[in-house]
Design a binder for these strands. Structure first.
Length: 490
RNA sequence: GGUGGGGUGGCCGAGUGGCGAGGCAGCGGCCUGCAAAGCCGUCAACGCGGGUUCGAUUCCCGUCCCCACCUCCA
């Protein structure tokens, strides 16, 4: 069984063969921290988190690097706008006035971390920032100029461009011929040899903050968007590394340009290109201008965090992920089916029995994950195991049930579903202990009533607990209580 | 115009040249004092028109429609 992954560059699913046996180097594009995270960002992060978890599960040591683009046009624009006299709080009305660009970038960087953390997306090995890698970028530009693939702008603007006509392979990632590419309607041909040449370095402009300009061999300025990823990926992962990833919308121009400038500079660069699909809202791409967006925060308000993660990861990563009202509730039902079995198994068999069983995933699950991370098929294997485990519990087949429970536990872990912080989980609080004591007392009373066939009294106790948000489930082993989602959501 | 990806049962979503995943929802049953949970059964699909084939949802041709990208975009 070998891992196979789709590769954008060859447009095929092919065997994944790491550069170094047992090790995987992964670079994937994180956010330009110019606004709050939206669902697309977290979907991408979950997709690559799933990749890392599966790689680790099958025995690879993974070095993952995700960049933070903390300097770009939009960041500067938004920061500049916050100084306007009539500033009204930006997109969501909550942005502070008079915020310097670096403060804005840093604030949103933290918002991204909060969103990732809330969904159990583990931190990459390293998260380099563009602004921290000027010397690496200068070196790359110099190599490109020396090789004849880049040139300082001919209009004295201080810009430096990549010369696409000097690089015949340009367009290879997305299989486009230069001639077929539409000129950008707003492309400013000033100083460019070809309108499709892209900026490696942007000369400082009048009115831009001095803090957003760095001295370079070509004058003061700031980096172009694509350069940082080439510079940072090769710095931390080597001139050739295994996987480069990002959202589908980054294929062109971002990744095409990265590939061009890195290979033109002589780097082997990424051996495998992975792109996750977009998130849609009832079939349409989410976009601010259409107004059909839902934020990670709104999702977390609508469903349990674990269910949100389940939803974001449940489609195959290359497929569009379609959100529609009700989708999160369906995910919640699926998650609770899995959790109910896991809890039931531990209650019936004991934690030791489950922990002692082999922590292996079913062959179907492994085969699905190996097949370009076919999560839907893997989830089918997971649910099938849950069903088999429930049957084993019903039949009193303890060994089988323990094995199924252990397998479920491992699959849940590979999918990162046990890594999502839930309200009320974690350390047992004093409040929880007090609640448990009270509920247990009532349950004992109810058991007594049931034993006496006083069902009216038993039901009254159940109703009373239900009114307080505590749900009771009876079984042969006794009654268990829980705080279902409605109560937790508060 | 160019490039890539799609159209599967009530909804989501895998997959396959014949034995038709999985989840959610529905229906029937079992279990239960009642419920909940669980289990069993059940309903039901492959955009349209041709072709290849003993047989196609799966391969080929045509056609319609949808989505994404083409220098802001995860």
């Amino acid at each position: 069984m070998a891992l196979r992954l789709y590769d954008t560059k060859t447009a095929t699913v092919r065997d994944f063969v790491p550069l170094e046996p047992g090790r995987v180097s992964l670079y994937y594009c994180g956010a330009t921290v110019q606004g709050r995270p939206h669902v697309g960002h977290v979907r991408s992060a979950v997709a690559f988190d799933l990749l890392v978890r599966w790689l680790e599960h099958i025995g690879f040591a993974v070095t993952s690097v995700r960049n933070v683009t903390d300097i770009d046009d939009k960041i500067l624009e938004k920061a500049a706008a916050s100084f306007a006299a009539d500033f009204a709080g930006g997109d969501d009305g909550a942005d502070p006035a008079g915020e310097p660009w670096f403060a804005l970038a840093h604030r949103f960087e933290q918002a991204f971390h909060a969103a990732y953390d809330a969904l159990g997306v583990r931190r990459p090995t390293y998260e380099p920032r563009a602004t921290g890698h000027m010397t690496e970028m200068f070196a790359l530009i110099e190599r490109l100029i020396e090789a004849g693939h880049a040139y300082p702008a001919e209009d004295g603007s201080g810009d430096v461009y990549f010369d696409v006509r000097s690089w015949p392979a340009y367009g290879e990632l997305t299989r486009q011929a230069l001639e077929d590419m539409q000129d950008a309607p707003d492309a400013d041909p000033r100083g460019k040899r070809d309108s499709r040449d892209f900026a490696l370095w942007k000369g400082h402009k009048e009115g831009e903050p001095e803090t957003a300009a760095w001295d370079s061999p070509w004058g003061r300025g700031r980096p172009g968007w694509h350069l940082e990823c080439s510079a940072m990926s090769t710095k931390y992962l080597g001139s050739t590394f295994d996987i480069h990833g990002g959202g589908l919308d980054l294929r062109f121009p971002h990744h095409e340009n990265e590939l061009a400038q890195s290979s033109a500079a002589g780097d082997g660069f990424a051996r495998h290109w992975l792109h996750n699909g977009m998130v849609t809202y009832e079939g349409e791409k989410m976009s601010k201008s259409v107004g059909n967006t839902i934020s990670p925060d709104e999702m977390l308000a609508a469903a349990r965090p674990t269910a949100v993660r389940y939803f974001l990861g449940q489609a195959q990563y290359r497929s569009p992920l379609d959100y529609r009202p009700g989708a999160l509730q369906e995910a919640e039902a699926a998650v609770e089916r899995i959790e109910t079995f896991a809890a039931r198994a531990v209650e019936t068999l004991g934690e030791d029995a489950v922990a002692a069983a082999a922590q292996q995933v079913p062959a179907e699950f492994a085969a699905a994950m190996d097949d370009d991370l076919n999560v839907p098929a893997a989830l089918a294997a997971l649910h099938e195991t849950v069903r088999a485990g429930n049957t084993a519990l019903d039949e009193g087949a303890a060994d089988v049930a323990a094995a199924r429970a252990a397998a479920v536990r491992t699959m849940v872990s590979v999918l990162g579903l046990d890594d999502v912080p839930e309200a009320g989980s974690g350390a047992v609080s004093a409040e929880h202990a007090a609640l448990a004591a009270l509920v247990d007392g009532l349950l004992a009373e109810r058991a007594e009533a049931k034993a006496e066939k006083d069902f009216a009294r038993a039901d009254a106790i159940r109703d009373r607990l239900a009114a307080a948000g505590v749900m009771i489930e009876d079984s042969r082993e006794g009654s268990r209580w829980s705080l279902p989602k409605e109560a937790r959501r508060g």
